[in-house]
């Protein structure tokens, strides 16, 4: 059994430091690792990244994150990444990591991802250079995710993105903005590689649960969706136990 905690869209700045910490102090008793699905900061500044590192660092369990669109706002994503990594947190972008947990190997592959839409309402690689760049960006992120997912050997594999890989977890958002919230190519990459679970954020008004066309469970862990500090998911269960007491 592996238990992973997950949340996204925490948007940390000075005014948020300390809000999550009481719940995070309890996390090692409830889960074996924490995955964060992007939008770690408000504007993607180094100062905000330091606030994030202060709030989510030093937990006693591994913390693995991807960046979100907010973390790119100030064009300092490289500095933001370094600041967070200096706090001992793993930042994935088209890359994977393997965590040894309870005798199991948990693989996590991640990317920010991008928009583009879903079947029946997606952008095409056609026309103006700007549109081809938009679709090409989505396809590049999806290809990087697939490569990362396929690069690891593990007992359970989790795909971690900021943008959504399926439309089901966007239900509640205006249909008109689905194309800015995710793209089908991410779901296709997850299905091509196979995964036990896909986690994403970004859709604050979306829904929690969905599945890829290939049947991989998808969870939208955006903080306004889950409405608590983090959710906990159990993988590789030997038995069903839905209480969190005595998780370790």
């Amino acid at each position: 059994m592996i238990r992973i905690a997950a949340v996204g869209d925490v948007h940390v700045d000075k005014d948020v430091v300390g809000r999550y910490r009481p719940a995070l102090e309890e996390l090692p008793d409830r889960a074996d690792a924490l995955l964060i699905a992007g939008d770690l900061t408000r504007h993607g500044t180094v100062d905000e990244a330091k606030c994030f590192a202060q709030e989510f660092g030093g937990l006693g369990v591994p913390v693995v994150v991807v960046l979100g669109n907010h973390d790119h706002q100030s064009d300092q994503q490289d500095e933001v990444t370094k600041t967070i990594e200096d706090a001992g947190i793993t930042v994935l972008e088209g890359a994977a990591t393997v965590l040894e947990i309870r005798g199991h190997r948990l693989g996590v592959a991640g990317t920010k991802g991008f928009g583009g839409g879903f079947a029946g309402a997606c952008a095409s690689n056609f026309g103006e250079r700007e549109m081809k760049d938009f679709v090409g960006t989505a396809e590049r992120y999806a290809a990087d995710l697939e490569r990362a997912l396929k690069s690891v050997e593990c007992d359970a594999l989790v795909a971690l993105t900021h943008y959504a890989p399926v439309p089901e977890t966007l239900v509640g958002e205006p249909l008109e903005i689905y194309a800015f919230l995710g793209c089908y190519q991410l779901g296709r990459s997850i299905d091509a590689a196979g995964a036990a679970l896909a986690l994403h954020g970004h859709a604050h008004h979306g829904s929690e649960r969905g599945r890829t066309p290939g049947g991989v469970p998808v969870r939208n862990v955006a903080h306004p969706v889950i409405k608590q500090a983090y959710n906990v998911y159990q993988l590789l269960s030997e038995e069903v136990d839905t209480t969190l007491i005595g998780a370790r």
């Binding site: 409830r30 608590q228 500090a229 998911y233 159990q234 839905t242």
Partner: peptide, 14 residues
Amino acid sequence: ITRAQAPSEVEEIS
């Protein structure tokens, strides 16, 4: 203001 309390339940993924 989004609540930030610790969870009380776990979801088994299958």
